[in-house]
Computed example of a mutant assay.
Amino acid sequence: MDMHEHRRNRLQALIEDNYGGDRKTFCDASEMSESRLAQLLSASYRDGQGFGEKAARSLEGRLGLSFLYFDLLATGESAAQELYQQHARTDARTDESIRILQVKLKLTAGSARFKSEEVDPTLCVWRFSKSWFKERHLSADKLLAISVTGSSMAPALKDGDVVVVNTADTQVKDNAVYLINYQGEAVVRRMALDFGRWYLSSDNISRKQYQRQEFNDKKDVVIGRVILMASEQI
């Protein structure tokens, strides 16, 4: 099996596992035309050599996948593994730290899926040792940093603050703070349980301007729980 065939198999498995085998859904998420996807999956297009290095790296970036996702686990492909390790060594410091990316999100109302685009850090670079992740049972690929907009969560969180969100933690708990896909907009709110109903609550005491909204689990989606924050305003 050559690398092009291996990439095709990895891509097909990704579509089956993460997108229910629906090519249109995958194309929407990756901003790729269905005809281009067909080329990548074709064993005859360009004599089976159509899923090249540039295409693989570009697709990994658009989907937020790890570097060399489509190349890894190829039988006998030690070169790909070595390149991945070299990339990891370049990105890591002497304490083998891992960086959490700051991103901006593109959401669709009611959808649990989201697209993320890396942006330059606004307050700090989030970087932690592997032991830090292990001790807290966190997975680096499930964490993202995002800038807070508006004053709905003041004084706890102010406009321009940056928070780290654990997208693996979507189980709602009373009084915990979450990043929510609320009608297609990314909002940070404190969840409040009141007489069996969940509400998105603001910390800002101006209730006239920041009224709580009832959480609709059929329309609203919990992206993840806020676990860290950085602020220049103390």
Rank of each mutant, 00 (worst) to 15 (best):
A156K: 08
I205E: 11
L157P: 07
G52Q: 14
P121Q: 00
E53K: 14
Y210N: 04
K173N: 04
F195N: 05
S30G: 12
R36W: 09
F67C: 14
I223P: 01
E77D: 15
F195M: 03
I100E: 01
R93T: 07
D169S: 06
M191E: 05
Q171L: 06
A156R: 09
C124L: 11
K106M: 08
S231L: 09
Q49W: 12
T75W: 13
N9L: 15
L37W: 10
H6F: 11
G50D: 10
M191D: 04
L228A: 03
R127W: 00
N181E: 04
R207K: 11
A55G: 13
L73M: 15
L228R: 07
R93S: 08
A56N: 13
R36E: 08
E135N: 10
D28W: 08
L41I: 15
V119E: 00
K130F: 05
L105S: 02
G21L: 13
R57Q: 13
I100A: 03
A92E: 11
I205Q: 11
E16C: 01
G52C: 13
K130T: 07
H6A: 06
I100N: 01
F215V: 05
E34K: 14
D28N: 12
D22M: 09
E16N: 14
D28F: 10
K104E: 09
R225S: 06
Y199L: 04
V163Y: 03
Y199Q: 02
K106H: 10
K142Q: 06
I227D: 03
E117R: 12
L200R: 02
T25D: 12
D159N: 11
T170V: 06
D174P: 03
L179I: 04
T170R: 08
V162I: 00
G150K: 01
Y19N: 10
D161C: 07
L138W: 05
A230Y: 07
D17W: 09
V188A: 05
F67M: 13
N204Q: 09
Y45G: 02
V148A: 00
Q171P: 01
Y45K: 12
C27S: 08
N166R: 04
T75D: 15
M153E: 05
S66K: 12
K54R: 15
D91V: 04
W126V: 01
R189D: 05
A176E: 09
D2K: 00
D220Q: 03
M3G: 00
D169Q: 06
E5W: 02
A56M: 13
G20I: 10
R57W: 08
A192G: 03
S129N: 00
H137P: 03
G61F: 10
Q171N: 06
L123D: 00
L107Y: 03
L72W: 15
A79R: 14
N18Y: 11
I100R: 05
K115W: 04
L83Y: 13
R7D: 02
